[in-house]
Amino acid sequence: MKSGTWFKLYIGVFLIFLYAPALLLPVFAFNDSSIVSFPLKGFTLNWFNVLWETEALHTATKNSLLIAVSTAIIATSLGILAARASSRYKFRGQKAVMGFIMVPLVLPEIIVGVSLLVVILQMGFDLSLWTIVLGHVLICTPFCVAILSSAFLSLDQSLEEASFDLGRSKLATFWLVTMPLVLPGVVSAMLISFTISLDEFIIAFFLAGTEPTLPVYIWGQLRFPQKLPSLMALGTILLILSLTLLATAEYFRRRSARKTGIEDAGGFL
């Protein structure tokens, strides 16, 4: 079929467009030249070695990890509560409440960053890593709610009723039946939040105090051309890390879907 061939050609070009930056990242990370441009000069691991020796980078990484882990835990906890409430209970104003919780999904991040900055400064608090966590939890919670809602919804409600009917209390039912079956969704939500937080720049830039996060550190370094090749190496490591985490998240989400007997073709959103 002729239209099919054109279609495939378009998809091919589109995939090149989509992957161009991601593919260039490792290319320049291993390129033996201090200028990030073509033509390529040769292979080196030097830029990765530079990363090991940069103290500031290590501090920024530690900060980012602390923020990402805290964000993942808090956002997932808030997500579990909201997702459970929206999928199992009916209450007046439910749609409005859930819509409101999901708003950060479409709100420009600059608005989130600016408004939190204003409040924190007005309240007289100092900017710190924790102020970034506050902002990140806000933008990650909607993702967690979305993932966990589908986990709770795909759970056959009669499983919980069956447990109750067979003599277990509501609490025992939650731990013995509900939790094991939505656990993959919980893991998936945590990994997604962790990944989003680790890479988030716009909010972090507004809310960072004296301690930079990894993206804030990278932003600072982008101005210095001689730092660029090592940043490419750093980007490569981050990409691999993100992909590993996401593949794990996807694996758990699918396993969750399979366990509860739901076939689906959904992605992360």
Binding site: Y89, I101, S115, V119
Partner: peptide, 27 residues
Amino acid sequence: EEASGWLLVSPTLVYSILLLAAPLAMV
């Protein structure tokens, strides 16, 4: 049922009010 729903959703809702609605009002 109403009460359970509201009770469960309230921590997330309060968070959103404190860190989204209130800051926006402030802005």
